[in-house]
Every structure is written in structure tokens, then in C-alpha cells.
Design a protein around this nucleic acid. Structure first.
Length: 310
RNA sequence: GGAGAGGUACCCGAGUGGCCAAAGGGAGCAGACUGUAAAUCUGCCGGCGAAGCCUUCGGAGGUUCGAAUCCUCCCCUCUCCA
């Protein structure tokens, strides 16, 4: 799968949370006569509307959206699955001569979509369970030591406190008998699958933080608390990955009696800021993204016209 | 007016003579990231900087070899009594 120059390029529109991706995406999609492919790890879940700032039904009526509502909140979902679902959509759009517009803030999903992922085995529930038990019994230090033995490179690279990655590395090693770092050395994100045009929307940090606070307030006015209550009532508990999402996590804690609403809200604001910061760090690392001021629609559209059609 | 309590770095807060540029937490900033990624994890955090130096603990004095810590006066905040 090499990038085919005859195919329309894939436009990637990224940016930190609350920067204004959705609105601009609608405009771009409208101008280019194309469709939007969501690249937000939380908007893929059903029933999570307000807190994920998912495009509304009205917005979706204006421009077709893909990869929204493709999983239940308790369904396993990850970057590989995302890419698996998004690729056929991209192809289908390209076959119709359209430039797929991938929009979202989930850096890893974009990376895996455009560059693939190492073919190490997916998550295995049985081994996970076993690892969880060992973690409880012996502690993380011990597991990290084991990793150092079976996969010295990963052991060196991974911080002993990084529970998630240490467990994942052990999982792969046990499942396949091959160290994760070997799998990874086979796949270094070198190959690009599509011809892409990458845009990263940014704003002054203080302005972004103000927008975040404002949007949190709006979400609450729109009934985010009720939405979270509904999810809990449907049996989607706070332990689910989907329920770790910013906003859902804090409000679920409040609804379950852990803290007053006011502190849940300020926790949510802070978590959103932290998230935005991490997004900035992530995308700074990908020099192919062109950073553009989020208000400069005119400039963006002109630049897109030049670049995407050249 | 009287009786107490207190003022510590952006915030909260520990520290009661040297081991204090000052615990801890939060915020903030920077970074890492290959199947949980809105997750997980790391570092920095008075100033300049290599060592080291310089300015900090409400303000001004004082005691002491040495003060955030002790004394004096002043300013401010809070609680209670009037």
C-alpha cells in the first residue's frame, strides 16, 4: 500500500480540545464537497454526546460524518480497530474522487491510521487477568523486573511506574513469545499509507483555556450531568475506559457520592487543560503538521486549495 | 476598646536558632508515548548559573558566630468579648 499520487490526498485536521475543529471541519467539508471522518477516541462511543462535544444531528445532516457512534461504551475499542474501520471509508471517498477529511484530537489514532501499527497480538483478556492478579500480589516493581529479563530493551525504555505499558509489554511477550520491542523494531512508523495534508489548529494558550472553561459551562447547561447519570443507569460504570473520558470521570465520581458538584466541575476543567497540553506535546512531535491559527479560516482554506490540489 | 489566633514562594500548607532556597500538595511549564491514548508515565518549578553566587518567609529595627524561627515597634487578616 504505497501512496498513490493519482488518489486525492487525505486531509488531517487536528488540534487541542476546544480549539474549534468541528466548525472549521464543517466549513472545509462543505467547500470541498467531501465528508468528515471522526478521529476522536471518545466520540466513537454511543450515548456520549455532550461531554465528547460530538457533532450534533444538525451538523451531521449538513455533512456526512463517519466513525461516530461505532461502539458501545463497554465495547473494547483501540487504535487498531479505529484504523480498521476508517480505512474503508477513506478508500470509498477517494474512489469517489473526494478528499477524505479526518478530524480529531487523538494523535495516536491518526498515527496508526496513516502509518499502521506493529503487528503484535491484540489485547488478550485472559493474560490481562493473570497480569492483574500478579500485579496485585507482587506489585509493579516486580513485573517491571520481569520485563527487564524477557525484554531488556522495553524494560529499559519503560519507566517502572508506567503500569499500562509495562503490562502491555509483558502481555505481548507472553502471548507471542516475542518481545514487544522486537515487534516494534519491525514497524517503525516509517511507511505512509496515504498522501496526506496535515493541519494542526492552535490558539494562544490563555485563550484556549478560556474557551475550555466556557465549553465546560456550556456542557453542563446542555445537561452533561444527566447524560452521565443516564450512562451510569445503563450499567456503564466508572471502571470502563470510555468512562475515563474527561468530564465523564469527574461527574461520575460526583454522582457516586465522591465529591460535591463544584469540585467535580473544577476537576473537569483542570483535566481538560491537562489533556489539551498533552495534545500540544504530541503534535509538536510530528513535524509534518502545519500549525495554523485557528481563527484564520481564510488562510487555511486558501492554503488547502493550493496544497491539496497541487 | 479588650482577649486570643495568625501573616511562609502563583495558591494551600509544613517548618520554631545552623542540616532551609525553605517538607508536602495543587496550579503552571516541558517531555515521553506502537492495540486503555480524553489513557498511562516522567522531569522542571525564586533569580543567574558548571561549581557557585544573589534576592526571599508582612514591614522596620535588634539579639546572635548564625534568624523563617528569639526580642521590640509598626502594618494587615481572622475569631471571640464589648
Amino acid at each position: 500500500m504505497l501512496p498513490s499520487p493519482s488518489f486525492p490526498p487525505v486531509i488531517l485536521l487536528a488540534g487541542p480540545t476546544a480549539v474549534g475543529k468541528t466548525q472549521l471541519a464543517l466549513e472545509i467539508a462543505h467547500r470541498l464537497g467531501t465528508e468528515i471522518i471522526n478521529c476522536d477516541s471518545m466520540q466513537v462511543y454511543r450515548y456520549m454526546e455532550i461531554g465528547t462535544a460530538k457533532p450534533t444531528q444538525e451538523e451531521r445532516a449538513l455533512v456526512p460524518h463517519h466513525l461516530l457512534d461505532v461502539a458501545d461504551p463497554d465495547e473494547p475499542f483501540d487504535a487498531a480497530r479505529y484504523a480498521e474501520l476508517a480505512r474503508p471509508v477513506i478508500e470509498s471517498l477517494q474512489n469517489r474522487g473526494k478528499m477524505p477529511l479526518v478530524v480529531g484530537g487523538t494523535g495516536l489514532y491518526m498515527k496508526v491510521l496513516t502509518r499502521g501499527i506493529c503487528p503484535a497480538a491484540p489485547r488478550d483478556p485472559a493474560i490481562r487477568e493473570q497480569l492483574r492478579r500478579e500485579l496485585e500480589e507482587h506489585g509493579l516493581e516486580r513485573l517491571h523486573q520481569e520485563l527487564g529479563r524477557v525484554d531488556p530493551e522495553a524494560g529499559r525504555r519503560l519507566h517502572p511506574h508506567d503500569r499500562q505499558r509495562v503490562l502491555r509489554a509483558l502481555e505481548v511477550q507472553r502471548l507471542t513469545g516475542i518481545p514487544l520491542s522486537c515487534w516494534q523494531s519491525q514497524h517503525r512508523f516509517q511507511q505512509t499509507i496515504y498522501r496526506t495534508v496535515k493541519i494542526f489548529l492552535y490558539r494562544d494558550r490563555n485563550v484556549l483555556y478560556e474557551r475550555i472553561n466556557r465549553r465546560v459551562r456550556q456542557m453542563l447547561e446542555q445537561g452533561l450531568v444527566a447524560e452521565v447519570r443516564r450512562l451510569l443507569a445503563m450499567g456503564y460504570g466508572p471502571e470502563l475506559k470510555s468512562m475515563q473520558a474527561v468530564g465523564y470521570k469527574q461527574l461520575a465520581a460526583h454522582l457516586l457520592g465522591a465529591c460535591p458538584l463544584a469540585s467535580a466541575v473544577s476537576d473537569m476543567e483542570r483535566a481538560t487543560r491537562h489533556y489539551a497540553r498533552r495534545q500540544l506535546t504530541w503534535f509538536r512531535g510530528d513535524s509534518e503538521f502545519r500549525w495554523v491559527q485557528a481563527d484564520d479560516w481564510q488562510g487555511i482554506l486558501e492554503w488547502l486549495n493550493r496544497t491539496a490540489t497541487s
